[in-house]
């Protein structure tokens, strides 16, 4: 059994390992030998080149901006919506809940959303990604279900002590809900870091491209010619290894965060039922 599991894990790790080793190989050696399990000629040239690319650095900055600012705003908006909806005495909450949920299930789709983005003047701005994609309705449902489980007595005790609704929310409910809030935040930030399709539609300028869009461009430009035509090989200018260095650099933030976030994601799986 161990052997089977080991082999399966190897299948998952192998492509990641190959990308990693290739990014540290000199272009000449790569073009001569192809993918190697252990790099034959160690080289950092690809990374040097990547860091000389201003567009790449910009795209990292863009992605970080959208991920951090966007996820914070997403979390705030989601919590502000989810908390009142968890109040069973609030008139109209069923109706609001229904509309919110349905807005996730049926939406205008790519083009009508894009038209609204243009109409609100966000086209070709990073704010289009932050604002138009701010809310995932199913996370409102998830967080609301969590808020429902916060004991009412504690809140009421706080209110008797003179807390208003806002104070009770900030001082009592939020500290009690940190794991759920963290889970929600993680979902948003992972979605935002990995998202690229909307960026492709909403953003035109290369300088505003998020990392994933930039990476896609680099990867696909090479594969048009079937994966390296052999141009520039004589000069040893990294092309293939350069791409792989970018893949590595784009993966690293996820891998660094990964051990911390995976727990929260598994929690999310059980918190709000099954969601893909």
């Amino acid at each position: 059994m161990r052997a089977i599991v080991f082999l399966l894990i190897l299948m998952i790790l192998l492509p990641i390992w190959f990308v990693f080793t290739t990014s540290f190989t000199s272009e000449v050696a790569y073009l001569r030998d192809g993918v190697q399990i252990i790099p034959k000629e160690f080289s950092l040239k690809a990374y040097e080149m990547v860091f000389e690319k201003p567009l790449f650095l910009r795209s990292i900055g863009n992605s970080l901006f959208v991920t951090i600012v966007g996820s914070v705003l997403s979390l705030v908006a989601t919590a502000l919506m989810a908390y009142p909806l968890s109040k069973t005495f609030l008139p109209g909450r069923r109706w609001i809940m229904f509309v919110t949920y349905m807005s996730g299930l049926f939406n205008g789709g790519v083009i009508p959303t894009w038209l609204v983005v243009k109409w609100t003047g966000l086209y070709n701005s990073l704010w289009s990604l932050i604002i138009a994609l701010m809310i995932m309705p199913w996370l409102i449902v998830l967080l609301r279900n969590f808020f429902l489980s916060v004991p009412r007595e504690i809140e009421e005790a706080g209110m008797i002590d003179g807390c208003g609704v806002f104070q009770a929310f900030v001082k009592i409910v939020i500290p009690m809900s940190l794991p759920a809030l963290a889970t929600t935040f993680m979902y948003y930030s992972l979605f935002r870091w990995n998202e690229w399709f909307n960026a492709l539609v909403f953003i035109q300028d290369r300088e505003l491209w998020p990392l994933q869009v930039f990476l896609r461009d680099v990867l696909l430009m090479g594969s048009v010619s079937g994966g390296g035509t052999g141009t520039d090989t004589s000069q040893g200018i990294p092309n293939e290894t350069y791409k792989m260095a970018m893949v590595v650099l784009s993966t690293i933030p996820v891998l660094i965060m990964y051990p911390f976030v995976q727990k929260f994601f598994i929690k999310g799986l059980t918190m709000g039922g099954v969601k893909q």
Binding site: L14, F18, G34, W193, N194, S223, G227, G228
Partner: peptide, 26 residues
């Protein structure tokens, strides 16, 4: 085994590229 779930399709494509590309893929 959960790692790939956390990667975007662009990055996954980069990995598949190393396995399957014509000239130098594994």
């Amino acid at each position: 085994s959960y790692i790939p779930q956390f990667l975007s399709w662009v990055i996954v494509y980069g990995f598949m590229y190393m396995l399957f590309n014509y000239n130098y893929g594994a």
